[in-house]
Design a protein around this nucleic acid. Structure first.
Lengths: 382, 382
DNA sequence: CGTCCGACTGAGAACCTTCTCAGTCGCGCC
DNA sequence: GGCGCGACTGAGAAGGTTCTCAGTCGGACG
């Protein structure tokens, strides 16, 4: 009498129980590690499980427990080293607490974000880390947040969701400090390469503070403008060059900039891929750096110390970003666990409790790609 | 009479059905999109679902269908740009077919790999992509492969699992071509930086072909040795320097090498982080490149054209690796789907059918960091 | 010797959805 | 008008686990 396995699938606990000659309840107790089980049953069940190659079915378990031990992570692109680092750090933190990662990329496409959120919701993740993507994220996320799903926002704040934890970087201040460094060196014609250049008019007079509802690139552009203003420089739209998020496009944009505005003596790049394009364009331009032109990049990648001159950059704590998000999420999930059942249905996690806003600090690392503006002997302002 | 929601959790289909005044069967038909449902019921159910914010529970659905629409991805480190790119490409491919990604990192720790595999198994992923990690992977993976779980190996082949699809890069040939390039330039004292240097004795006489059971770093070292032999150069253990997988460690190793063996005129690095360490060490050494010493790196990262001289590198098709793995996995899963039920329990997917071995080709990109060996006027050999 | 207690076990509900099977109802056709 | 058929609906099992509740059994104590 061979144990007839009903389907091709892996053996279930009832097959193990039958093989061991006990009830499924007892088999469950042994294999699930709950309740008591006698030594004799235990041995029989363990032997049978071993023999049949039994693995518990996490789906069934999750269905009952209402917990999948999985967190959803939705980012723009794991292929980007910024998110790759953050996700890696995040994974380590939550994994130590027994959670796995369900990963989705959106490529900044709101529709893709919507799909990703739906799926995370259907798969019943226990928590969610999201790098918001463009217009409408708050509305897309609200139902989930209000249903009490522990959620942490990453990299980009969302003022419209005050109850949701948010972990970001002080982008505006970073940019201000980077550009401030340039103005102090006497530069007046300072260009910026930014994905957000198109929004210049809107951002121009905005008093965007760190932690407000802006994409990092926009926040950095705001910081750039603020630094110029502080130095008494009127921002020139000509020097705010747009580039899509692509190295070669950035290279072309910078090349065009240098051709049209040869008087520029300094350049600020608002992120890593734009920085690398700018370096390429600069090398190609025949200008000496920092002799003719100074350059500040964003994100302290390994290669920034390998090029000559070594790049002055804003270092962002990418790993810490992931770590902080993971920790915050674990706390929220633990809270929810604690309050489970004792709270009534409504708003278990969306109560009046304000979400925490963690703003990590990037910092300027001065290296060799920035120097005094050409022909400046006058004392730097401020 | 407010619908009493039993638990804090999201509404289930029975709540929707009750609210709509129909049976769960009908509600299921409407919301699940199977079977027929009358227009009147349909409207009532949809309204109720909308009002209650119903989302189907993927766990229950998966439990019934026996499919989670999820694939497990186990790599060394998503933070590493190589895997970041591959995983990104992989995600795109499988996502287009409706699969999500469950991600785990192992850091080359066999125990972590074991844990990851267990969890993937318990969570009942529909397929698995694994970058094998060190000793014992075949044994860890075998039970799952034999249970018919579609599996694709990534980046590192495993001869012990002939039935499993494997997608790799022709590392040995790549290394041979890189080092052959150096010997043709007249170099005789060629050093190599490798994670696998410790295994030199074992690899020395090995006739490892691409697609054999070796870590990429070992395969590349074998290619290095083969190229030397072909040029009639006896490999010198002094010039095979070990470095852990860390940029700064690599930098130290190379610095020490140059100090002890100043006669070295060429250096081959077996992967991206080692390459970046070597560049740093070289810049620091005061030697001119390629005048005094030539350098070949591995993996064509963006920065390799930003440093001076531009690096000669072996380009690996990282994204294609992920794409190919994803496609292969999709095919396997489709096959399994097709055969489901008609095949008997045993070995549904582990039959005699040999796994496919896809070997993608990297290629040498000659740039400026390699030149003729100093003082060679004689004609290059071969 | 009877009773009670503890250790252990088994039956069965619950989790949420899918899907089979049987049943109801209206309508068209003979 | 009766019958058959099709469209639709509902009851209930299944999927694999957890967990409650009730029950059995041996032993200890009065």
């Amino acid at each position: 009498m061979q144990h007839k396995e009903r389907r091709g699938g892996p053996p279930s606990i009832v097959e193990v129980a039958r093989a061991a000659g006990v009830s499924t309840a007892t088999a469950g107790r042994v294999l699930g590690g709950y309740g008591h089980a006698g030594a004799a049953s235990r041995a029989k069940v363990e032997e049978a499980a071993q023999r049949l190659g039994y693995r518990p079915n996490g789906l069934a378990r999750s269905l009952i427990h209402g917990s999948t031990q999985t967190v959803g992570v939705v980012v723009t692109d794991v292929g980007n080293s910024f998110f790759a680092s953050a996700v890696r750090a995040l994974t380590d933190v939550v994994r130590a607490a027994g959670y796995e990662i369900l990963l989705a990329n959106t490529d900044s496409d709101p529709a893709a974000e919507q799909r990703a959120l739906q799926i995370m919701w259907e798969k019943r993740v226990d928590g969610l880390v999201l790098a918001p993507q463009g217009p409408g994220t708050a509305e897309r996320l609200r139902p989930m947040a209000e249903a009490g799903l522990p959620t942490v926002l990453l990299d980009r704040p969302l003022a419209a969701l005050p109850h949701v934890d948010q972990v970001t970087i002080n982008n505006t201040a970073c940019a201000r400090s980077a550009v401030g460094h340039l103005t102090r060196l006497g530069h007046r014609r300072i260009a910026v390469v930014s994905e957000a250049a198109r929004d210049l008019d809107r951002l121009r007079d905005a008093r965007v503070k760190d932690g407000d509802d802006e994409r990092p690139s926009a926040a950095r552009l705001v910081g750039h403008l603020a630094a110029l203003r502080r130095a008494g420089i009127e921002p020139d739209p000509e020097l705010v060059v747009h580039s899509p998020y692509d190295r070669h496009a950035a290279e072309r944009s910078v090349r065009r900039l240098l051709r049209r505005n040869p008087e520029v003596t300094a350049l600020f790049c608002t992120d890593n891929v734009l920085s690398s394009g700018a370096v390429a364009a600069l090398q190609d331009s025949g200008r000496s750096c920092p002799g003719d032109i100074s350059l500040v990049g964003f994100d302290d990648q390994d290669w920034t110390t390998l090029v000559r001159p070594r790049l002055t950059v804003v270092r962002q704590p990418r790993r810490e970003l992931g770590t902080a998000a993971g920790r915050r999420l674990l706390e929220r999930m633990a809270e929810r666990e604690r309050h489970a059942g004792q709270e009534s249905a409504q708003g278990a996690g969306s109560g009046a409790a304000a979400g925490e806003r963690i703003v990590l600090r990037g910092r300027l690392i001065t290296r060799e790609s920035t120097g005094p503006a050409p022909g400046t002997a006058r004392t730097p302002s401020a």
